[in-house]
Design a protein around this nucleic acid. Sequence first.
DNA 1: CATGAATGAGAGTTCATTCAT
DNA 2: GATGAATGAACTCTCATTCAT
Lengths: 194, 194, 194, 194
Amino acid sequence: MGDKSLQKKQFILENAREIFMVKGYKNVTMKDIVDKCEISRGGLYLYFNSTKEVFEEVLKMEVSETDDIFQDAIGEEASSMDILLLFFKEQKKELLRKRKNLTTAIYEFYFENKVAKKENSIRRQFDVAVKIMQQLIEEGVANGEFFCDNPLAMARNIMFVIEGLKISSQTMGITEEMIDSEFGYIVQWLALEE
Amino acid sequence: MGDKSLQKKQFILENAREIFMVKGYKNVTMKDIVDKCEISRGGLYLYFNSTKEVFEEVLKMEVSETDDIFQDAIGEEASSMDILLLFFKEQKKELLRKRKNLTTAIYEFYFENKVAKKENSIRRQFDVAVKIMQQLIEEGVANGEFFCDNPLAMARNIMFVIEGLKISSQTMGITEEMIDSEFGYIVQWLALEE
Amino acid sequence: MGDKSLQKKQFILENAREIFMVKGYKNVTMKDIVDKCEISRGGLYLYFNSTKEVFEEVLKMEVSETDDIFQDAIGEEASSMDILLLFFKEQKKELLRKRKNLTTAIYEFYFENKVAKKENSIRRQFDVAVKIMQQLIEEGVANGEFFCDNPLAMARNIMFVIEGLKISSQTMGITEEMIDSEFGYIVQWLALEE
Amino acid sequence: MGDKSLQKKQFILENAREIFMVKGYKNVTMKDIVDKCEISRGGLYLYFNSTKEVFEEVLKMEVSETDDIFQDAIGEEASSMDILLLFFKEQKKELLRKRKNLTTAIYEFYFENKVAKKENSIRRQFDVAVKIMQQLIEEGVANGEFFCDNPLAMARNIMFVIEGLKISSQTMGITEEMIDSEFGYIVQWLALEE
DNA sequence: CATGAATGAGAGTTCATTCAT
DNA sequence: GATGAATGAACTCTCATTCAT
């Protein structure tokens, strides 16, 4: 596949991503993608054989992007608390971007494709996030910023809360106040000398 | 609608519920329901005009049932901690019942139908659960069992964690250990004198 | 499937048969059948899931009919020679019905579906035909009409010649003269005292 | 068309022939040929405009080859019987080479293209074969090896039997025993003084 | 009320054929 | 000459929905 082909593939993926954000996963048809990209039916099949294939590649792009969010937060020299606050700020921004995110599509995709642990990107991301969060807490504890006797459990608690907020934002809707309240409580919890 | 009609409607709903548990929401067709119930196509349309209508009624049944779980836990005269532990035990049982629950279907339904707050049963249930949890914590604090300076935030934290566990169980899979760890940490936190 | 349904199925099969006679097997699409029958796309799928299924049933009808040809010839009280001549006459008629027979379709079908011996109707028919022909020759020999020291080989020779004529009529075309010459030679061969 | 072009054309034809042997005629697509030859789609169209055109040329190659079989048999100085036996041996070998021959493709091709006598290679080959067979028999009769009062009819009988065996080998399957029995009976018949 | 045959819109998919490079 | 991406017509198949009985 030549350079031009790769560009076209990228072009399709970006357009498809837009559609998945609006319509979720299951509702998207090959025709939707064809129409959005203004290419021919057969043309799309040169690159992808199903919406599943398209979505899997969209997901790959997505993952490498979201990984960066964390890296950015960690990368900057800052106190543990600052990093945590920055992370929460990013998450909040993401959570409030209601219509325009892939959350629904990703969930739908994994409902449909109960993937084994290893290849499950959602799981991998979750595990990575927990690990980094745990390290962050441990560092914070080490330098006296945080108080926590079980950083792993706390890290998981935080990530499950974020999962809970994510799914809630897609099903019942959540307010900014709820996010602030949740993240604020966690921060307070960590900062509190027991 | 006569008595016999009501019975038939109920019969359809119960069968449909089984299907939704296995196939989720979007994958279920009117034909699936017709086949499972062994009624005629036209027959089904006498009672419901779409899978959406069917699911909405299934959901109504469901809600009244799940409400009971909480009531049961509260109803028994017991210490706040006992009630909390009982509640967690019920939730754990539910979380581990992998294939045979409506979780996926419900999420899918709400992805499809971003319902206004009022009519959103998932939201109503969540709010009720938070409120009761808050009361429980407050009682626990009052009688010296728990220590918590922000029962509302804590109640929300618990319910978001549960939401997070629920969605995770359907997408990436969770282990019994993860559930125990989460709930254990929360219990410990509440019981801990700061 | 009710009585009416059976009639409709029969109706489809008869129309499909016409199409198979004209277009062969592979060239026939579900749409061809739909158009000829003037029914809806979905309507056809109520009865058959593929052209293969349709053709298999057409074949069943056909077999029971062709079986009769032989039975008719045998049924009449007549000399062995008369029966043989009658049989050849029928075959000739069939061979000359150029456009309007299923021969091509049947061959194409078996090219596509190299069926195991047992379920292979073409094989079954051939074997039956050989057996009956052998009996006929044996009877003819017994009553002094025919002379033949290997009725089985002769029966097979006759049936293979007929197969050869059949396929030749569909590929290179054969003349009435060729048929007469072939059958005439065989008759002479059998009648000839060695 | 230059020398290099001719080579390429030949290269395509040889590869295409392989495909036709495996997949028959109708099932072969331009893509199949392109893939097998590892050339570009456009490249193939420089030489052939359709699978039909390709097959027609494959057929031409084929014919000149098969003609040789006969010539070889005749060429050697041998008794008529030896030549006949040699010819049958070749035919038998061909008949038993089940998967790897063009028989099915050729039949399919002529089903699709009911060609006029003149250009019909199958017909031409058949006629030639009959003629040579007739001469062979006549020679055999002349030198006292064979007994036959109608060499033309006998020659045709033989060739139709071979056609019958060919088609039968592709549709219902034939055993070695059946071939031996058929050819044996014919040989015996020719050798027999009446 | 209840049936289930029938409809047709629309999704998926394949392939011969073209054409800018 | 040669390439291979792109096109679009044609097919297969599925379902929600209707309607005569």
